[in-house]
């Protein structure tokens, strides 16, 4: 028998087969493998490596020398973290921030979606304008609002008639400034998901409820809310995850000065890249990760329940 040209492979039964890159299964591999390799190199390995580092005294500023930098320290970083009285303030501040910004976004976003259900002239333009903030880079948004909220010549105070309030630099206020800007930026996201949820509620249910003599509130609480609840929950999960680790927006708006609000991600940044306690920063990062996973898994549990 004449030998066929091309590379030969062996299938499960030991028969020789020609490798054909255009076969479905090979095509799938061709597309998937590079992605997986990329993921491992830039995501999974750093994730695991930072976990290892969090148990050492590694500093990225110093020369890497095994046994010296990094040197194995066990749980020392974690103990230090939990015994540091400041850390609780950071957790509380971050929690406060998440609660305020995500709460505001959920209420405003769902409210706007309800309003946008009615058809009116110019609805399309309003829709696009409302979605625009979401399309911008958070750092740019932060810098833009820094100018907008400037106490001397910013438009924000002027438009609200508030006088010379220093939103971005006053430590008593800058957390609220970040909350306001975050709400401005991410309300459209909640609005979009809410609109998707609302449009999935069939019109005939409202008609049935109308015939059943239900009031507006009864229809809202017994049909609209329960039927959009799963999508609202998805919006909530995304927003909580994102808000908990917010970094770029406060970085642009407030900066990293001493007056900056004590947010966890800012602490990770300053520990890791300002004081170069890389291992300590990694440990804090891991604690944040665990907290986020814990919160979202509770929410996802509710989501799964809602789906049934």
């Amino acid at each position: 028998m004449q030998k066929k040209k091309g590379p030969l492979l062996v299938d499960a039964r030991g028969n020789q087969v020609n490798f054909n890159p255009m076969r479905d299964v090979n095509l799938v591999r061709l597309f998937v493998f590079p992605t997986i390799i990329l993921l491992i190199v830039i995501n999974i390995f750093p994730l695991l490596w930072s976990l290892v580092l969090s148990f050492t005294d590694y500093s990225a500023r110093l020369q890497t020398e095994w046994g010296v930098n990094p040197e194995w320290e066990g749980t020392k970083n974690y103990v230090a973290l939990f015994t540091n009285p400041d850390i609780w303030l950071k957790f509380i501040t971050t929690g406060k921030y998440v609660l305020m910004s995500v709460g505001g976004e959920m209420i405003l976003g769902f409210g706007l979606a309800l309003l946008l259900q009615t058809k009116f002239a110019g609805r399309g333009i309003i829709y696009v304008l409302l979605v625009l903030p979401m399309t911008m880079s958070p750092v740019i948004v932060g810098l833009m609002w820094k100018l907008f909220m400037d106490p001397n010549w910013g438009m924000f105070n002027f438009m609200l008639g508030l006088g010379r309030i220093d939103w971005a630099q006053d430590p008593a206020r800058n957390l609220y400034a970040i909350v306001i800007v975050d709400i401005w930026m991410w309300t459209p996201f909640v609005m979009l998901l809410s609109m998707a949820g609302l449009s999935a509620v069939p019109q005939y249910l409202y008609e049935a409820a109308e015939v059943d003599r239900a009031s507006w509130w009864f229809k809202f609480s017994r049909i609209t809310l329960p039927m959009t609840y799963p999508l609202l929950l998805i919006a909530l999960i995304f927003r909580v995850m994102d808000a908990f680790k917010i970094f770029d927006l406060p970085m642009g708006l407030v900066g990293r000065g001493s007056g900056a609000p004590p947010l966890l991600s800012m602490e990770v940044y300053s520990q890791t890249f300002m004081t170069w306690r890389t291992s300590y920063g990694s440990a804090l990062g891991y604690i944040m990760l665990i907290v986020i996973i814990a919160i979202t898994s509770v929410l996802i549990k509710y989501l799964n329940k809602a789906k049934h």
Binding site: A208, A209, S215, F218, R222
Partner: peptide
């Protein structure tokens, strides 16, 4: 009104569907 596609409230049990007009 009995609708062509029933228009039952999908998230409510049969009992709650029937009781809906009274609850309202």
């Amino acid at each position: 009104f009995v609708f062509q596609l029933y228009a039952l409230y999908p998230h409510l049990t049969a009992y709650k569907n029937i009781a809906f007009p009274l609850k309202a």
